[in-house]
Design a protein around this nucleic acid. Structure first.
Lengths: 118, 118
DNA sequence: GCTTTGTTTAACTTGCCGGTTGAATATGGG
DNA sequence: CCCATATTCAACCGGCAAGTTAAACAAAGC
């Protein structure tokens, strides 16, 4: 099961969930064990485990067991197809990484939807 | 209702549906009336109408009535936020528009899932 | 070998999503 | 005014996705 080229369906629906995006953002900083990934969230560990499975199925992360803990690491290539697809629509100006930084800061605190605290 | 900044939730879940992506690809070539958008699909007009509503809510298209037909046009800016978000994960090489072209050709014919003909 | 720690599986509930059909609401044309 | 065209609304249905809890499985440690 080499996780053959995941579909845009899988990738975009994986990204559609704020919890999963938050997880990706966390993994961007460092590889993490499942339990540690789950820590900041208010939902059950099982739920997070499922989210991780979804991300893995979409090719966005990889989970590899070492000892009894399972390490989750980002798989940046997984996003490439989707990124290519999207950019075709916009001819966007080259992306400013600072924008991304800011974006993360804005979107990380609220991992439960879209209601921002004004 | 100025369609205030749509959320990543809305954008990504809009993109997660193959029918909706196909619609976007169609609109990339030209603005279209709702009926014409619906034509190539095998589902009801009402269903397509809903899909269009979802895309509009996500800020990916705009629908403006002129006479009795409603024109759907792409709103490329709508993708920018999502694109910025995604690229932060990859530092992707500059996107090749030919890649996009090929991608479209591959993904357009099958607007019902992921089974590609090998 | 038993217990603890880490993670997944199973069974179940709930709510949303994508589709249907049929009626309702414009708008334009004879 | 009446009819046809264009689009949405409303009510409904089936399925799946996301969450829960409790049990199972795996690996380490004593």
């Amino acid at each position: 099961m080499p996780a053959q080229q995941p579909s845009l369906d899988a990738i975009f629906s994986a990204l559609a969930d704020p919890t999963r995006r938050a997880i990706l953002a966390m993994l961007l900083e460092d590889d993490m064990a499942v339990t540690d990934v789950a820590a900041p969230f208010e939902m059950s560990l099982a739920a997070i485990s499922k989210h991780l499975a979804v991300l893995a199925a979409a090719g966005l992360i990889r989970q590899e067991r070492r000892g009894r803990i399972i390490w989750c690491k980002l798989e940046p290539d997984g996003l490439r197809n989707a990124s290519v697809w999207m950019q075709g629509f916009g001819q966007f100006e080259p992306v400013d990484l600072d924008d991304f930084e800011r974006f993360l800061r804005e979107s990380l605190p609220l991992m439960d939807g879209d209601d921002a605290k004004p």
